[in-house]
């Protein structure tokens, strides 16, 4: 099974020896094995795990779409970073900033945005490993 994970900024992963993929679909985690039915799903904030012949690759994503074709998966992600590429300091700062905003509950700050920012940062930190 092939996979391509593409973001507006780069191609994050391209592999053709994929055994299994876990996608953070909005309704919950979705596992895909070779021979899966063709499908389009939208992704939420979460973890993508790609099991290759020589071990798993884990990535943090902040949402997007996945298209499952016969033996081919194309992920169009808003952002996707491998666990080793995650900027932990930046994510931590982003989480603090978002938490601060959520705590203050100031009128003119868009709460939904702060919440989304918090979720993205928390997700990155979780995937990057134990703090």
């Amino acid at each position: 099974m092939e996979i391509r994970i593409i973001t507006p900024r780069n191609t994050v992963l391209e592999a053709d020896d994929v055994e299994h993929v876990l996608l953070p679909a909005e309704g919950g985690e979705l596992g895909i094995l070779p021979g899966h039915i063709t499908m389009v799903c939208s992704l939420g904030v979460g973890r993508i795990q790609v099991d290759l012949a020589d071990g798993p690759v884990r990535l943090a994503t902040s949402g997007g779409f996945a298209e499952v074709l016969q033996d081919r998966i194309i992920v169009l992600a808003d952002t996707a970073e491998r666990e080793s590429d995650i900027d932990v300091d930046r994510a931590r700062r982003a989480r603090e900033r978002a938490a601060e905003r959520l705590e203050k509950r100031v009128e003119d700050i868009d709460m939904a945005r702060a919440e989304a920012a918090f979720a993205r940062a928390a997700n990155r930190l979780e995937i990057a490993g134990p703090e």
Partner: peptide
């Protein structure tokens, strides 16, 4: 060819469409 394929939509067709267009 892809057009002839039957797709499964998650969560559903309308929502995917709407997201795709917005995106």
């Amino acid at each position: 060819e892809a057009e002839r394929l039957v797709y499964l939509y998650e969560p559903n067709y309308e929502q995917i469409c709407s997201r795709l267009v917005a995106h």
